[in-house]
Amino acid sequence: MDRIIPQVDALTVRMLQHELRKRGLPVSGIKKDLRNRVMEALRSEHADGWTLGYLLNIKIVPFNGRGRDPQTLVGRHITGLSGWDDNTVTIMLSDGEDQTIVCQAADADDLNFGMDQELFDLFYTSSNDERTYEKKPLLITEAAIALCKDRQGVVATNIVGIKLAGMKEVGFFGVTKLGVDVWLAG
């Protein structure tokens, strides 16, 4: 929650009002009042399990039975990634069968996988060339399915997340198009 405070403090009055509107809260008052109202709403959402991401827009949820349980990744070591063009990302593992994250929607033409910044930094060099980890694979310490809200605060899609040794929190693979189903292939 502490890392959200600077994000809220940086919001303009118009942005604070937007955050309040999407939560159905009053938008009148001075900036300090708007900020306090947004912070209270975020604290409530955080207490309900919404965490991480842009103003608390991700919530880890129990495995939904679709595909493979992400927990089967815990304790494995990643040596790299492949895919992207066919709406899949394959996580290459040094100690087990490679695992594929699948993305599906009714209209798959505009789908595009992405990663949050911390995962991206671990997998890519500054030139955006993919790193390989054959010599020093990355240990997966947590894995989960999560729900993700869109910028209007509406629950829009599910995503797959992993935490690698050295990361502070779970990082997520997601898609730029909302309303899609993302799972670990079984």
Rank of each mutant, 00 (worst) to 15 (best):
residue 4 I to S: 07
residue 5 I to M: 03
residue 5 I to F: 04
residue 6 P to V: 05
residue 7 Q to H: 11
residue 9 D to N: 12
residue 10 A to Y: 06
residue 16 L to K: 04
residue 18 H to R: 14
residue 19 E to W: 02
residue 20 L to F: 05
residue 24 G to C: 05
residue 25 L to M: 11
residue 30 I to V: 05
residue 32 K to T: 07
residue 34 L to K: 03
residue 35 R to L: 05
residue 36 N to I: 03
residue 36 N to D: 10
residue 39 M to I: 15
residue 39 M to C: 14
residue 45 E to T: 08
residue 48 D to V: 01
residue 48 D to H: 12
residue 49 G to Y: 07
residue 49 G to W: 11
residue 51 T to C: 15
residue 53 G to H: 00
residue 54 Y to W: 08
residue 56 L to C: 13
residue 56 L to S: 07
residue 58 I to K: 04
residue 58 I to W: 04
residue 59 K to H: 11
residue 60 I to F: 07
residue 63 F to E: 08
residue 64 N to Q: 15
residue 64 N to S: 15
residue 64 N to I: 11
residue 65 G to T: 07
residue 68 R to N: 05
residue 71 Q to R: 14
residue 72 T to Y: 09
residue 73 L to N: 04
residue 76 R to F: 02
residue 80 G to E: 00
residue 80 G to R: 10
residue 83 G to V: 09
residue 88 T to G: 03
residue 89 V to P: 00
residue 91 I to Q: 09
residue 91 I to E: 02
residue 93 L to T: 14
residue 94 S to C: 10
residue 94 S to Q: 13
residue 100 T to E: 13
residue 100 T to A: 15
residue 101 I to K: 07
residue 103 C to Y: 09
residue 110 D to Y: 12
residue 111 L to C: 11
residue 112 N to L: 06
residue 113 F to W: 15
residue 115 M to E: 14
residue 116 D to Q: 06
residue 117 Q to R: 11
residue 119 L to M: 14
residue 119 L to P: 10
residue 120 F to Y: 08
residue 121 D to P: 00
residue 123 F to N: 02
residue 125 T to E: 15
residue 127 S to Y: 13
residue 131 R to G: 03
residue 134 E to F: 12
residue 135 K to N: 14
residue 136 K to V: 10
residue 139 L to P: 02
residue 140 I to D: 06
residue 140 I to L: 04
residue 144 A to P: 00
residue 149 K to R: 13
residue 150 D to F: 12
residue 150 D to V: 07
residue 150 D to N: 15
residue 153 G to N: 06
residue 155 V to N: 08
residue 155 V to F: 02
residue 156 A to K: 01
residue 158 N to E: 08
residue 163 K to R: 04
residue 163 K to D: 04
residue 165 A to Q: 07
residue 168 K to M: 06
residue 168 K to D: 05
residue 173 F to Y: 12
residue 178 L to E: 01
residue 178 L to T: 02
residue 179 G to A: 00
residue 182 V to T: 11
residue 186 G to V: 01
